[in-house]
C-alpha cells in the first residue's frame, strides 16, 4: 500500500532503542531534581538565551550542560520513529488505527492540559509544561500499540 509521511519499518527498532531508555532516564533524573547543567558542559550556539534577572542575549556562544537537551532530542526523535515507522505489514486498517490513535492522543493531551491549567498552580504547572513537550507523542504511542495489541489478541482468541 502507498503511504505518505511514514518511515520504513527498520526505523521502528531504532526508535524504540532511542525512545524508551531516554524517557526512563529523563523521568528518573528529573523527578530526583538532578542538576542537568552540571554535566557535559559544552559550548553551544544560542539564537536566544536569557537568564533570570539579566537581559537576553541573541546569537551568542554560551556554556551549557547538554545532557537534558540530548535526552529530550532522543525522546522526540525516538518517539517519532516509533509512532511513524511502518509496521511490518502496513495496510489500510493499520493506517486507520494510527490516525484514530493520533486523534485520541490530541484530545487526551489537551484534556490533561485543560485540567492542569485549571487545577495546578506554581512550579508544578511548569513541570506539566515540560512534560507537554513530548506527552502527546507518548500518549499516541501507547494508544496505537495498545490498539494493535488488542487487534492481534482478538485473532488469537479465536484460535
Amino acid at each position: 500500500m502507498k503511504t505518505h509521511f511514514l518511515f520504513p519499518n527498520q526505523f521502528k527498532k531504532i526508535g524504540w532503542i532511542l525512545f524508551v531508555p531516554s524517557l526512563v532516564i529523563g523521568i528518573v533524573l528529573y523527578t530526583n531534581s538532578f542538576n542537568f547543567d552540571d554535566y557535559f558542559k559544552t559550548n553551544v550556539f544560542a539564537i536566544l538565551n536569557d537568564e533570570l534577572l539579566s537581559k537576553s542575549n541573541y546569537f551568542s556562544i554560551i556554556k551549557n550542560g547538554i545532557l537534558d537537551e540530548m535526552i529530550l532530542i532522543f525522546i522526540i526523535v525516538g518517539g517519532i520513529l516509533v509512532g511513524f515507522s511502518k509496521v511490518k505489514r502496513e495496510d489500510e486498517l493499520i493506517s486507520k488505527i494510527r490516525y484514530e490513535s493520533l486523534v485520541w492522543a490530541v484530545y487526551f493531551n489537551f484534556g490533561i492540559m485543560l485540567f492542569s491549567t485549571i487545577f495546578i498552580y506554581g512550579m508544578m504547572y511548569f513541570n506539566v509544561l515540560i512534560m507537554n513537550v513530548f506527552s502527546m507523542l507518548f500518549f499516541f504511542i501507547i494508544r496505537f500499540h495498545y490498539m494493535l495489541y488488542k487487534l492481534q489478541k482478538s485473532i488469537q482468541d479465536e484460535e
Partner: peptide, 22 residues
C-alpha cells in the same frame, strides 16, 4: 492481497469497511 491478517479478520467480523481498492 497484501494486507495484514488482522484486516481480513476485522472485515469478516464487520468491524472494518475496506477501501474501494481492497
Amino acid at each position: 492481497i497484501q494486507v495484514s491478517r488482522q484486516t481480513i479478520n476485522a472485515m469478516e467480523k464487520g468491524k472494518y469497511v475496506p477501501s474501494t481498492v481492497l
